[in-house]
Design a protein around this nucleic acid. Structure first.
Length: 569
RNA sequence: UACCCCAUAGUGUAAUGGUAGCACCAGUGAUUUUGGUUCACUUAGUCUAGGUUCAAAUCCUAGUGGGGUAGCCA
């Protein structure tokens, strides 16, 4: 259930077309299938951090519960202790809550291990399951391929008594890993591989993060998942497309066991350009230090996006904008970025920050004099008020806001040109000072005292308005500029012999350590977000900032039509 | 090789047998003390071939294209 931001004027709650899952839910409601009850669940395996693709699923599952007066559980699918860990459990809970959702029930598949075991025994007693003693290799061989039917396991017709005995001894730890499995007795000739006597239990002498060493046999996903749904009386079990072929098996278990009938529905997982989304790859990026952890601001993980400066609202907004269908598709990453811009444009306070400083001396401004200027905090929100910023003789402007030989459409500063310093004065550049290597080190300018605040009494116009910071008052800061983690739209699209890793963007992180911020930014708190005017949205890094030198992450740039014009030439 | 799913402007999605619509992108213009925001306008689409029907994006068949599936992973 969402805990905030559901006001009527909020874009998330605006009228929109219902997606196909919502239509199914509404049809069930209309038909009174579950007496008006809607119950979903979000079922992550705690073997990695949540990413934006999970956010889509979270928004779908929790969103449906919320919109139809239902409930949504958080359930950890922890049936494979070899890969799972409490570290992941904790991060998943944190991420779900941060996204703004509260689960109605929190469960673990491991809570149900005994019930699962009992139901497996029941299936054996009904002659629907058997202990198979084929090796993994033999099992694969017997399963057959797409070109024909598989072969029945020689153990398929063991007596019920023998199966019961063997299964009990599997549980008791009498056998080594891989010696036996419990299999459902379905159809080795099925064109659906999942129905060719799938494994229900395997022996794994592995310590489980919650049940410890209590079990040495663990249920397989197909057996456990549907039963967990059934136990929790889940009405709509929503998963991704690759589980489509598992649905007949999901149904088979519930039907044979004759327990509460949950239904599985599948939707297309989220793909986004310039990034990767599989847990395997994200893990690889982390473990091989391509990034600096799961919460690296370049990662598509929830924790990465959070550290990058994304808001839960922006992510939820993105998830509702992209829709839910069964079509495989890839969304442009700029959609995600736009969602953030849309929110922060309305909410973020504006500040001045100079990324790559160029000193400007105002020759006709009195030395030592400080003139306090009034600046609007947020033009989109008058209630945000104003603040005072100091104007002095020595300023910093952006290096990119000056060109010695400006091209035609360049509106900013150049020799002999006049621009407006935002909330300051008009200044005109008279002299360019360079070092021995010819690099520009300083600009000599004059200001027009009549233009205080940025208006000329004679009504003369100026094309460019640039930002600035008073040199003596400036706060030094480190600013990290992030770009797409991968250069190509689809990192997985590689020629023979190459891997997605070859598409990593070598310039995905640029650290600027000599940035100059306006004084009001001195005590910005970790996680706080601002718009640095004309540059983008930035937030105080939650890990690296300390009191002597704040560190800001660039969440997203502003739209930049000038940069676009330059790119096009 | 078999089975399953999918196919609508560049991208992403509506229309559920009855006028093909929306958003983003792109382009043009207006406003603007952020080359931001906002506003207006413009471009552009039902994969192909048959069939059913008064009427098909929608139903049927075939083809084409894309995706998925042969873990004792989930």
């Amino acid at each position: 259930m969402t805990t905030d931001n559901q006001s009527p004027e909020h874009p998330e709650s605006e009228e929109r077309q219902k997606n196909f899952v919502e239509q199914i839910v509404e049809a069930d409601l209309a038909a009174n299938t579950h007496a008006g009850r809607v119950h979903t669940r979000f079922p992550p395996e705690p073997n990695g951090y949540l990413h934006i693709g999970h956010a889509k699923s979270i928004c779908l599952n929790f969103g449906i519960a919320q919109n139809y007066n239902g409930q949504c559980n958080l359930r950890f699918d922890d049936t494979n202790p070899a890969k799972e860990d409490t570290e992941y459990v904790d991060s998943i809970k944190e991420d779900v809550q941060w996204l703004g959702f509260e689960w109605d029930g929190i469960y673990f598949a491991s809570d149900y291990f005994q019930q699962l075991y009992d139901l497996a025994v029941q299936l054996i007693q009904d002659g629907k399951a058997y202990v198979c003693s084929l090796s993994p290799e033999e099992t694969k061989e017997y399963r057959g391929g797409w070109d024909g039917a598989g072969k029945d396991s020689p153990y398929r017709n063991r007596s019920i008594e023998e199966n019961l005995d063997l299964f009990a001894r599997m549980k008791a730890g009498e056998f080594a890993d891989g010696e036996h499995t419990l299999r459902a007795k379905i159809d080795m000739a099925s064109p659906n591989m999942n129905m060719r006597d799938p494994a229900m239990y395997r022996i794994k002498h592995v310590h489980h993060h919650r049940t410890g060493d209590q079990w040495c046999i663990y249920p397989m996903y197909d057996f456990a998942h549907g039963i967990c749904d059934s136990i929790e009386k889940i009405t709509h079990s929503i998963c991704t497309l690759e589980f489509e072929h598992h649905r007949p098996l999901y149904d088979w278990f519930l039907d044979e066991l004759d327990i509460f009938r949950s239904r599985q529905y599948e939707f297309a997982r989220l793909n986004i350009t310039h990034t990767v989304m599989s847990k395997r790859r994200l893990l690889e990026l982390v473990e091989n230090d391509y990034v600096q952890g799961w919460d690296d601001p370049r990662m598509p993980t929830i924790s990465g996006l959070r550290r990058r400066g994304y808001t839960p609202e922006a992510i939820r907004q993105f998830c509702t904008r992209i829709g839910v269908t069964k079509q495989n598709s890839t969304h442009d990453i700029s959609w995600l970025e736009d969602s953030l811009r849309a929110q922060l444009n309305k909410e973020a306070q504006r500040r001045a920050a100079v990324l790559r400083p160029l000193k400007v001396i105002i020759d006709n401004f009195p030395e030592g004099h400080v003139e306090m200027m009034e600046a609007v905090n947020n033009p989109e929100d008058p209630s945000a008020g104003t603040r005072q910023i100091p104007f002095t003789r020595e300023l910093y402007i952006e290096q990119t806001d000056f060109m010695e030989e400006p091209p035609k459409k360049f509106f900013r500063l150049g020799p002999g040109r006049e621009v407006r310093l935002r909330y300051g004065f008009f200044i005109t550049c008279h002299e360019v000072i360079k070092d021995d290597e010819g690099r520009i080190t300083e600009l000599r300018c004059t200001y027009d005292p009549e233009t205080r605040g940025g208006q000329a009494p004679d009504g003369r116009k100026v094309r460019g308005t640039i930002h600035w910071v008073s040199a003596n008052h400036a706060v030094d800061a480190e600013i990290r500029l992030y770009d797409h983690l991968f250069e190509t739209q689809n990192p997985s699209d590689v020629e023979q012999g190459k891997s997605y890793l070859d598409n990593i963007n070598p310039n995905s992180l640029e650290v600027l350590s000599n940035c100059k911020l306006e004084p009001s930014l001195a005590d910005a708190q970790p996680g706080e977000r601002f718009q640095f005017e004309r540059l983008g949205y930035f937030c105080v890094d939650s890990q690296a900032s300390n009191s002597n030198k704040p560190v800001f992450n660039r969440s997203v740039t502003l739209r930049d039509t000038w940069a676009k014009m330059q790119r096009k030439g």
